[in-house]
Design a binder for these strands. Structure first.
Lengths: 336, 336
DNA sequence: ACTGATATCGAAAGCGGTTTCGGTAACTTC
DNA sequence: GAAGTTACCGAAACCGCTTTCGATATCAGT
């Protein structure tokens, strides 16, 4: 690898001048600048970002913490979060940052997430879809490093949310408008997001004088095929089966529909089904899924915007950003 | 950020000794070593990987080039390649490498992929699902940097392939065994992989004395919904409609099935359909898709293994690795 | 007591850059 | 022509770490 010293030697100047020419400093003669730039070009010079990071104390690197509590679909393969990450990546790349996945190992050493991020001197970290109870994550959130989280309620770092309450309100109202009164919500594990959604569900039910008992709330493990199938079958086997099911997400809804179909029943003729997320998946099956579309592009972009802002202003102020949702009417619901 | 100098000062020794203690050099007294380690611990020391990279000339960073020719589902959201990447990541992480996505920008500067990788001093690069005709990619492949590619035939760098020929042979034979003779293959753009698959298709058809004309080969754009739907409709509208369709991949097959269903026809009663890849997607619809399962875990692992091998041995020898495929029988085919 | 081996340590150079600051040389200005 | 600017350049310190190599102290052996 060739260095600025090599260039300096060939041009006949000092390394300082080369550095200045390369970095558009004003105090270098136009002629020398050109000679240096040409020489750099012809020698195939490539600045060493490590050396630069060392002096500038900025790596242009953003750490990504991106896993899942589920064993089934994790990391990149997660239908929903991969979309957010893709959008996040696009925005940060434009800003000149690279994304580095933070793991628990560097070279030969086992490290905590915080240690990893600090070793790599990441300028900031985005956390999504991680187990927020993980001691490692907590440690990271409470560090001095710029952090933005997605879908996680906390009082230290900025976070991005979809309007979960609103989403469930829209879904529930939609079903009620179709004359459904007996609606079961198969939701995910209790956490902040789920809490908000349940609240939206309950409030809307009550506001429309629909009875709501514990029968109407069923918990299922997130992105867990077995659990989703089991819970769906359980609900379908009830003697007074509901007329509609709200699934925790599109993935669950699509699986649920499959289970229902395998039971010899039809959606929406025998039961109405809605999801949440707005995955392409939901539109690839028959019937098209009615669902809430989360604006993943916007979520990723807002997360990126907020994170780069924190990095560049050093102001870690907690700001919560809420991203709007939208009802997408498919063909999985029917008026009763 | 605290440095080895800070530790040295507090312990009362030189920075060299601190470094040695931290790196398990033999020439440091057990007592001093302990003092240093304890001090490092209590001060919350975190080595600067940039500084280490500078001296060791090794970054423990692998560049990832991972996009798609399609506008629809790219990067992380690609159903198939995200699985490979996930597996790749798992393996390289275990080995202590970090993954960095290589873009066309660093800080304020626009750069080529090669420049990006060289600036970051990546130890190696994995390329998957990229446009291999991109001048940027070609430049990278012909550089001195350790590179492994997936699904790309070339004569400079090591590559990992699924047994594409074998895959189509299995699919075609399966259909023929079910008495299908009129089979249309809706394949992707012509490239090496597609070529291999077409060869497998044609050879098997011929070996079974099935007629094969240009009618039997239809080209459709990869992961392009519109194109897939159009081509499917075209084939379905023929007056002597085939009894079976082989789609380029599961994504296309699932979309194809939807189109067929929307035409008021049934799979497999009216026509048999098979895909390629083995996506979860294919098993989430009714009927379950019959397809070829590509071993994405193995592909990612082999790619990682080969790449780290090249990095660690400096031997860039071209080695092609072939990964076996398997027929998965769903319910999307019927005997005629 | 003397020699040679061994254990332990640190000075210093190097990795590849950036940035301050002082020094020339040339150029204005009156 | 003296004084003050301005343009341009480079020495040197620094970023944080690794690694060589020589120095010193200690110890065993004879």
């Amino acid at each position: 690898m060739i260095t600025i010293y090599d260039i300096a030697k060939n041009v006949g100047c000092s390394s300082a001048t080369v550095s200045k020419a390369l970095n558009n400093y004003p105090d270098v003669n136009a002629m020398t600048r050109k000679k240096i730039l040409d020489m750099a070009e012809s020698m195939g010079y490539s600045p060493n970002s490590q050396a630069q990071a060392l002096t500038k104390n900025k790596t242009w690197n953003i750490g990504v913490l991106f896993e899942t509590e589920s064993e089934i679909r994790n990391g990149f393969t997660h239908y929903f979060f991969s979309q957010i990450l893709e959008s996040f990546k696009k925005y940060t790349e434009e800003r000149g940052y690279d994304l580095t996945f933070v793991s628990q190992k560097i070279g030969e050493n086992k490290v905590s997430f915080l240690q990893h991020v600090r070793r790599r001197r990441c300028d900031g970290v985005i956390i999504a879809n991680y187990d927020y109870n993980d001691q490692n994550v907590i440690e990271l959130i409470h560090s001095k490093i710029p952090v933005v989280v997605i879908d996680f309620d906390n009082d230290t770092v900025s976070s991005i949310f979809s309007e979960n309450y609103e989403g469930l309100k829209l879904l529930t109202q939609h079903l009620i408008d179709l004359n459904h009164h007996d609606i079961v919500y198969i939701h995910g594990q209790r956490n902040y997001v789920t809490g908000e959604r349940i609240r939206g569900f309950e409030d809307t039910m009550k506001a429309n004088n629909c009875e709501i008992t514990e029968e109407h709330l069923v918990e299922s493990a997130y992105y867990n095929r077995q659990s989703i199938a089991d819970k769906t079958r359980l609900v379908m086997a009830r003697e007074n089966r509901p007329t509609a099911i709200i699934f925790s997400d599109d993935y669950a809804a699509v699986l649920g529909i499959k289970v229902i179909q395998e039971l010899g029943l039809k959606v929406p003729e025998d039961i109405s089904v809605v999801g949440f997320d707005g995955l392409e998946l939901g539109q690839m099956i028959t019937p098209h899924l009615t669902t809430i579309v989360q604006d993943t592009r916007m979520i990723g972009e807002q997360a990126a915007k907020r994170l780069t802002e924190i990095i560049e202003t050093k102001n870690r102020n907690k700001i919560d950003i809420s991203v709007g949702v939208e009802l997408l009417e498919g063909a999985s619901c029917k008026r009763v």
